[in-house]
Computed example of a mutant assay.
Amino acid sequence: MQEITGREPQTWGTIIGFGSCHYRYPTGTEGDSGVLGFAPRKAATTIYLFDGVDAHSEALAELGPHTTGVGCLYIKDLEQVDLDVLRSILERSLAWVEAGGTPDVQLTVTG
């Protein structure tokens, strides 16, 4: 993720993030996060995708063993997934964040 974003890692609680952005939802919920990030967990590594997993359905079909949540990709073993496919997912998600998101999710890259 550091190579993809060109940004240094930093921690956001238990999440390792790269770069930073401010997000705002129509509900008024807002906060700060990394533009890309992951959390090493016992059950699986969690990769956070601001644009959601549905935006990557075709690539996810080719990724290899994984599970998903609304905006999370869970990978138990990185050696079993196609790292080129994972990289393309991360690059596409980063481009979406850097473009400012959508009217439903306003994103401002701050670092």
Rank of each mutant, 00 (worst) to 15 (best):
D51I: 03
L63H: 10
L73Q: 12
E79R: 10
R87F: 04
E3P: 00
E30G: 05
K76A: 13
C72D: 12
G31M: 03
H56V: 13
V70S: 15
V97C: 11
S57N: 11
T110R: 10
L86R: 06
D51Y: 09
K42S: 01
E79W: 03
K76W: 03
Q106E: 15
P26N: 13
I16M: 06
E3M: 03
A61K: 11
I47K: 11
A43W: 04
T108R: 10
G101Q: 13
K76C: 04
T102K: 13
P65T: 08
G101C: 07
G71T: 11
R92S: 15
A59H: 12
C72V: 14
T5H: 02
R92V: 12
L63I: 06
D32I: 04
F50E: 11
H22R: 14
S88Q: 08
V97D: 10
P65E: 08
A99M: 13
R24W: 05
K42M: 00
C72T: 15
L90D: 05
T11P: 00
L73D: 13
F50R: 02
D77A: 05
V85E: 01
T108M: 06
E62F: 07
R87Q: 09
G17W: 01
Q106A: 13
G13N: 11
V35Q: 05
H56R: 14
G17N: 02
G37T: 02
G31V: 02
G6R: 04
D104Q: 10
L60E: 08
P26W: 07
A61L: 06
Q2P: 00
T11A: 02
G52Q: 09
E98T: 14
P9T: 05
A59R: 15
G6L: 04
D82P: 05
E30C: 09
R92G: 15
D77T: 03
M1C: 01
I47L: 14
L83T: 10
S57E: 14
L78P: 06
C21S: 02
D84C: 02
I75K: 12
E30L: 08
